[in-house]
Design a protein around this nucleic acid. Structure first.
Lengths: 122, 122
DNA sequence: CTCCTTCGATTACGAATGTAATCTAAGGCC
DNA sequence: GGCCTTAGATTACATTCGTAATCGAAGGAG
C-alpha cells in the first residue's frame, strides 16, 4: 500500500507532533496547504485504511498518531529512488549532485566528518 | 506535467537507445515488463502529450526519441525527494543510509575520492 | 484491384488521488 | 426534552494511471 503525496504531508504533521485531532492536523497544515477540514479527514481515513496511522477514541472524537516510523518511510522512499535512478547505490547520487554543483560547503564538511567517523568506528 | 512510474520505464528504454519504434521499445521492455504492445503505445502517446518524447515519422510508423535529458529528470526527482525528506540537503541523506548500514565499501571509497577531487579543483 | 496485415488513434475501464460536500449521530445549551 | 453544533462516516466527482482492446487507414501480397 502506497502513501500518496497528499497523505505524506499529513504523516509529516503527525510525525512532528502526536497525538492530534483531525482539526489540529488541519491547523498545522494550514500554513502550507489550504485544505478544507473535510479533506484532511478524508486523508486521515485513507491513512487509517492503509494502517499508516492509528486513531484512539477520545470522547466523541479521535486522536491520531503515526503507526509507521518516519525513518522507515524515508528509507523506503529513498531506496526506491536510488534503485530506480542510481543502480541502488548512494555514491552515484552524491556524484550527481556534485556535478550539478548542488553540494554546499556544509554538505561537504558533513560528508567528510561522516566518512572519518566510519573509518574510526572499529 | 509529471512523468508516471510506468512512463518512466519507457523513458529509460529510450534513454538507453534511440530512436526506437514502439515495437522496439516493447521488445526492450519485455524482460522487465510483460506489457502488451498497445500498452506501450499508450504510454508513448501520453509521453508525447507531455512533450517528454518526440515522434519522427518514418514511412507509416514513428521513431521515438527522448526530448528531456535523463540527467534533468534524475535531478528533478532527486531534488524533489531531498526537499521533501531531507531539508533539501545531500549530507543528511547520506547520513541516513550510513545509519542504516547501507553504504557499501565501494560507496565509501567513491565518496572519499569524490571529496578529495572537490578539494583539488581549485 | 482486393484482401490481409500492421500501424497509430481512439476508446475503455477500474483503481488511486486530490479535493470536497453532505449525511448522521452524539453532546451541549436553553 | 428539543434544537443547534460538531465529529466522524459516507458519497461525490474530476484526473491521472495502469493496462488494454478495438477501430480505421495505409501498405504489401497475390
Amino acid at each position: 500500500m502506497q502513501i500518496s503525496d497528499a497523505e505524506s504531508q499529513v504523516m509529516e504533521t503527525l510525525w512532528q507532533a502526536h497525538p492530534l485531532t483531525a482539526e489540529q492536523v488541519a491547523e498545522r497544515l494550514a500554513p502550507h496547504q489550504a485544505w478544507e477540514l473535510s479533506t484532511v479527514k478524508t486523508l486521515l481515513n485513507r491513512l487509517l485504511k492503509k494502517r499508516a496511522v492509528a486513531a484512539d477514541r477520545d470522547g466523541r472524537r479521535y486522536l491520531y498518531r503515526p503507526l509507521i516510523a518516519r525513518a522507515d518511510y524515508v528509507h523506503a522512499e529513498s531506496s526506491g529512488l536510488l534503485d530506480r535512478l542510481f543502480g541502488g547505490r548512494v555514491a552515484p547520487l552524491v556524484a550527481h549532485f556534485s556535478e550539478r554543483r548542488k553540494l554546499t560547503k556544509k554538505d561537504i564538511a558533513e560528508l567528510k566528518r561522516l566518512l572519518a567517523e566510519l573509518d574510526h568506528e572499529r
